[in-house]
Design a protein around this nucleic acid. Sequence first.
DNA 1: TAGATTGTTAATCGATTAACAATC
DNA 2: TAGATTGTTAATCGATTAACAATC
Lengths: 234, 234
Amino acid sequence: MVIDINLSNLAGPKLPNPPSIPQPSLARLPQYHHYLVDLEARGITRISCSQIGGDLGYIPVQVRKDLQYTGIIGKPKTGYSVPELIRSIETFLGWNNINEAFLVGAGNLGTALLGHERFSKFGLRIVAAFDTDPEKIGLWIHEKAVLSLDQLSDLAQRMSVHLGIITTPAEAAQAVADEMVKGGIQAIWNFAPVKLRVPENIIVHNEDLYSTLASLSWKLARRFNVPIQEKEAV
Amino acid sequence: MVIDINLSNLAGPKLPNPPSIPQPSLARLPQYHHYLVDLEARGITRISCSQIGGDLGYIPVQVRKDLQYTGIIGKPKTGYSVPELIRSIETFLGWNNINEAFLVGAGNLGTALLGHERFSKFGLRIVAAFDTDPEKIGLWIHEKAVLSLDQLSDLAQRMSVHLGIITTPAEAAQAVADEMVKGGIQAIWNFAPVKLRVPENIIVHNEDLYSTLASLSWKLARRFNVPIQEKEAV
DNA sequence: TAGATTGTTAATCGATTAACAATC
DNA sequence: TAGATTGTTAATCGATTAACAATC
């Protein structure tokens, strides 16, 4: 048995924790999961990579590689056990252990996330919201209290909440992130269109709607405004 | 002058329209844009790649390559003109021409997007919402009417709306996409965690929150449950 | 057994980074 | 001019895909 403990966490300017799975593979796992849960509901117990790939639009090898990262072992000729595969993905992603989270920014988007019950199936429970607007502080949104941002770092420490969600305007995001770090929060899910400056060891994931919007509008513009590109001849 | 018209749009199983800019670069452009607008507001008129990179956490070459795709030309020694660069990015992304969009799924997330005024600065105007829930049809959310999904394809054609936003539950998403395609919609911004099956020529971008959540929970789990990986010795 | 499917190693492809030339 | 910075070509790196071996 080979035990492989990675302690390179504290140093390293580029790889704070060399991921043993490529980011794109990681991002595809929930998609397989969703698909498999649906299969299971329909009573299907075994599945092959080609079948999964065919249904989701990937080539079989890619599916196989992705699934292998979760540690699943398939049987030649018959494929994988659907329930086993589901459990394997859930365990791998840590969806069995609930992460409690604080959300900052009780605007439209924040409210939407607070009301998203389904997150609890995927290891996420938002336990409280925070804001700086006195009109919002004291409200309850989807059964969660809206507290003053001042209380965040203290409460995060006392409740050992280690996940923070930022749904504030861009201008406020950095200050919120600073508060979160002060409170010992380990990971930040950032919906504000800003690159946050945080210590090395804090995990940050951006959900930047404007990036997607940029791609969409570029492609639409390209399609409608006839794709002509001018270049100065040399 | 070299004119380069790309007509490979209709065929090609892999490259429906070979992008002349890598997807990651495209996704970074809005970030530069945001940063530059802020600079401009502070009265700064010229900027170098190393400065931008230093502030946003990229190396200078990468910034330079990204910006070059927009067609901007800089001056050695002095860098780029801030206002020119802003305009260059906006033109490149097509943010000057407004895209009108239909949104389907007037739940929490849909409501949040309907209320997001800032989108209009980035070429997006959501003109109406749709739903199948009779309780919602007829309502007005953030000054936009909620109509019956039945009306979508007809209205999309008559108003030549070519962008659709899906904020329905996973189960409903495919049917909605089908309606959109029927109505002649060209591009879909999909927030449902499902891989949509649409014709080749339809542009689809997924905003899959569960992908991000997967990454976050995997990394958190990895951090807290001591990163030990067992492998069977050979 | 034969053949389908997993598992694994090698080749390809695209994005990032490095090295260097051009220019103000 | 000298030096900073852009522009461009080459090298590197990581993810995807192809080729093939192992196995039920």
